[in-house]
Write a protein that binds this DNA or RNA. Structure first.
Lengths: 345, 345
DNA sequence: AATGTAAGCTTAATCGTTTAAATAGCAAAT
DNA sequence: ATTTGCTATTTAAACGATTAAGCTTACATT
């Protein structure tokens, strides 16, 4: 690739000393290793003349540390994860870590693959947005004493470090907000998933209804398969609207679902919020640009990403410390899509 | 990190042979190296029993190849780049390469940093979305014989491999499309940048006007600073609307600019396309969801990303081959935001 | 019996670092 | 004259792999 790589040896030869000395100097260990002042200066000079760049492979092989974090997310082309990835990247760089990102597509097999590839590449630790049915992967990492932090999702049965949203509460807030706006028949569109965060989003919604004394009709809940979003959302919305108690408001439990759902609602010629009020998880430019700005649950993205990196780095420094779980709160940003219901008089 | 790493040595000891033999077998070189059949089987068995995973650091140090590509983009949290990143990731994985992504924020210094960090980590090559004033970085890579492919943007003065859009033509198509729709006073919002792709977008627009016999008024062109998008777009749109020849149509030269611009157009209470027709580069969910779906220039994302990876890998195999430039065409997706002008009768 | 040769393994160098331990040189103390 | 104590530097092993070259056998050929 490059014409000639400059190594410690080249510097050592030019200075007429051993590579050890060069290593000491360039690592700022001249004091501890009692390197002569003028020799240190000479070495430094030569290093800069040759514009020496240390080979991280060799460093890492020797030290057992690569200063690399593996970040496993569902899909980098999803704005939510792209946002998180950027924050993680920046925070990692501040701490002299490099990030390798892998997209699992919510698929347990792909997730295994990624973990193995990254382990072979000797990443120091992981930040993982877990997919369904990946508990054994987490257990495996635990059993091998690999450091990792779960992000956005976690498994309540497995004690780990994690940084996630208080999904129950966020969903509860969304439901309550709509109820206070005068909506009574509120639907939820979620993923069909055993993942805890999704279950919590459903639970929060259901309990918000119950606490308001509203009977929950099963028709109001649509669970959509990851792989068949479009058709299942259409079917779900059709069903919700045709129910005995047709919905007058809809909560989308993720940004992707909201985008798909809104497209269909447009097609149907429904007006937001008069025909259907909307609240969604996640934030997106599309929400701002929609003819009726969408009310959404704002997640503390910066804090989520930063905290994940912090926890991981702290774990890498001291792998024996007990797992630290972190729960963060969402903020409801109220817009016109959920404005107080205009009753027909 | 892990309890105990399994190395070639461990397998060798367990099998009572040298590490060389193990290496030969596990790399499928048993034939060339005349390894005994039963011994090969035994070694393979032990390797799988211990679930041996090769250490890529050691491999790479020895071979001088890391099977790693550095991808430098402006910002992973920008959907355009996130999309590209995903395609590059997948295509690279197919070829047993891992990608390390870095965001330069369109900043030459950050770009230098990234290049150095990634070079130190011994990436085999780069795919780069160049920022302004980074010609010297490209020259540097060339002078060091580092393999790379430029993506989305290139420097016409420097012969390199690159994969970019035919920006001139795309912009020309956009202008022509509006003109054919009956719009005469067409504005363009672009970045204030010397980057060739941006200059080409401006040139295509200007020439589409000229070829249609329309006089171009400088007030119709707004160039916006990367760092001050919001205020400059607002000022620009104000100026365009207040010009002697107020614009009746607007071309946005990137997705980001379109999002910002549309927000302001909403604020102003203007109606698309009656008050202002719109065509934008890039694609986005927001464009579909807008009350009046936005006409856009669709870029061949898959082809762009895939080709970049292909060119790079081919270059890595044979670094001596001459640079291959690739130009791709955009497709105009016509929607309501640019529908044939309704003349007031 | 001497020689050739092929099969089956081992040895050892190498990639570029780090770092504990050894050594050399010299001055001061015994 | 020997020991002690410094300072300044070297030696060499180690990290985990790859691979050219060398070494034993056993067996076939002359």
């Amino acid at each position: 690739m490059s014409k000639k790589k400059v190594s410690l040896k080249d510097i050592a030869e030019k200075a007429g000393v051993s590579t050890a000395l060069v290593s000491y100097v360039l690592n700022g260990k001249e004091k501890e290793s009692r390197v002569g002042a003028e020799m240190a200066a000479k070495i430094r000079q030569i290093a800069s003349d040759l514009s020496y760049k240390p080979n991280y492979l060799a460093k890492s092989l020797r030290s057992g540390k690569t200063q690399t974090i593996g970040l496993i997310i569902a899909d980098i082309s999803n704005p939510f994860f792209a946002n998180i990835a950027r924050i993680v990247e920046d925070e990692a760089k501040k701490n002299d870590y490099t990030v390798i990102i892998g997209s699992s597509d919510e698929d347990a097999d792909k997730s295994w693959d990624l973990i193995n590839v990254l382990l072979n590449r000797q990443v120091d630790g992981f930040i993982i947005v877990s997919s369904e049915n990946t508990e054994e992967q987490i257990q495996y990492l635990n059993s091998r004493n690999v450091s990792f932090v779960l992000l956005d999702r976690h498994f309540p049965a497995i004690p780990t470090d994690y940084v996630v949203l208080n999904n129950y509460h966020a969903s509860y807030i969304a439901g309550t907000h709509l109820i206070e706006g005068g909506y009574r028949n509120i639907g939820l569109i979620a993923y069909r998933s055993q993942l805890f965060h999704m279950q919590e989003r459903i639970r929060g919604y259901v309990e918000s209804l119950r606490d308001a004394g509203i009977t929950f009709y099963p028709d109001w809940l649509t669970e959509v398969d990851f792989a068949r979003i479009e058709p299942e959302i259409r079917a779900g919305i059709d069903r919700m609207l045709a129910a005995d108690q047709p919905v007058d408001a809809l909560i989308f439990s993720t940004y992707r679902l909201a985008i798909s759902g809104l497209k269909y609602i447009n097609e149907l010629g429904l007006t937001v919020p008069d025909d259907l009020a909307i609240v969604s998880f996640g934030q997106a430019e599309a929400f701002d640009l929609y003819y009726c700005p969408i009310t959404y649950l704002q997640q503390p993205m910066e804090a989520l990403g930063k905290t994940a990196v912090e926890l991981l780095i702290s774990k890498l420094k001291d792998p024996e410390q007990p797992p630290r779980p972190v729960l963060m709160e969402a903020t409801l940003i109220a817009r016109n899509s959920s404005k107080v219901k205009a009753f027909v008089t």
